[in-house]
Nucleic acid binder design. Sequence first.
RNA 1: GGCCCCUUCGUCUAGAGGUCAGGACGUUGCCCUCUCAAGGCAGAAACACGGGUUCGAGUCCCGUAGGGGCCGCCA
Length: 466
Amino acid sequence: MSVRARFAPSPTGALHIGGVRTAIFNWLFTRHYKGKFILRIEDTDRTRSTEESIAEILDAMKWLGLDWDEGPFRQSDRLSIYQSNAQKLLKVGKAYRCYCSQEELERRRKEAEKQGRVYRYEGICRNIKSHPSGRPFAIRLTTPELGSIEVEDLIRGTIVFDAKEIDDFIIQKTDGFPTYNFAVVIDDATMDITHVIRGDDHIANTPKQVLIYEALSHEIPKFAHVSTILGSDKAKLSKRHGATSVVAYREMGYLPEALVNYLCRLGWSYGDQEIFPKEELIEKFTLENVGKSPAVFNPEKLLWLNGWYIRNKPADEIAQLVIPFLKKKGLNVTLDERLIKIVSILRERAKTLVELANSADYFFVDEVKYEDAAKKKFLSAETLPIFETLLEKLSSLVEFTVLELQNIFGEITEKRGIKLVQVAQPVRVALTGGTVSPGIFEVMEILGKEKVIERLKKAVHHISRS
RNA sequence: GGCCCCUUCGUCUAGAGGUCAGGACGUUGCCCUCUCAAGGCAGAAACACGGGUUCGAGUCCCGUAGGGGCCGCCA
């Protein structure tokens, strides 16, 4: 039988980095074994679930390239399925109606707590004979009192729970809605999920779920509990550690492959390899190489990886991707040869698409603005003669190329007995407004003769005026 | 409190009884160099602790400590 795994987020907010990693693991697992990846929205929390959140989750999944084969299913569409299964369990005596009031149970829980005990439902309604008509009831699973429940975990090995730890828990609430554990099992069972890969915060739920499978006489899937992603203080990763939503990373100029590559390496490894193109991830990903210990999210490493992908993806693709960021800055650009050239020289020093866009201004504006410090340091009287000879030589230049420009600068530095930096920096300020840019000859070539001369002249005016 | 999970450089990790404990991010120094990056080279940096088992333990067992999770008619 082919492998079937699922990702089941609850749409109560943005798609979280931690959630995405389990999505990635599930996706890779199914792709590696050529199985099916199912998307299911756990939206039974009526008050906290929102349509916007569902849309965002789907959007983020698509952006990351995590395509699904079935779904998205919604638990809210499946109410009758849960109810009929609960009825079935009732009928075969694996579950029973419980008429205990919530207030009463709450009282007992408090009482137990006071005595330092953990409250477990005593099974008061377990053997009730007459069913009071018209009274609301919840449905509880009849659980074993003795023995142990073993959970086979592909990452952690066998985990054993004492049956005494588990009471007759509720599977259907008084309002007819399923409880979480019940809905999950019914869904996974009816969707024929073979492998449940999820966060380790679900370990404690697993014995209960196993019990439900057994009551249903349904085959138990294989479980794999992945450890939590932590923040720098080793507490569970949350907003206070910085951005945690996928959409936020997209907006900060991260590439989906960098995020997938990074997140995947958090808890999974393949020898010493760090860079994994998607195809290679699919080929190499197995649960065997997933670690057990929790991992601290390290933004610097993600940033490094993002820089790596920016530098190594085909330049035209990066150009295409940076366009929205340039437009956001009010720069009107289109994908053409010039943009690709610009991107290919700028991307060496950008770690995000935002940085890349921010470093590109001077190629698109009509007039450069000088940075104060740069202007003060390099646009001074002594550079005036240099600019003048440069202008002279440039205007007679036919081939405005890196090579020719190099020659001209060489002539100037040689004649004046100065270093290249003494020419390059002032020119850089004149052309870009700042002291940092790609190689000055490359910048000049892309800017073109006309623009270069125009900007140098402007710089000359500026110096003369002050 | 009960139950469960986890523990190798600051961080991600390799390691499946015998290694100078390897790689990566970050960090330090040097090289390259028109600035900034990128790149190259070199360095500092770890087996939580205590007992066993074994000729030999990061690796196996048992404790301890620390971190985390779950204990709802929440998901």
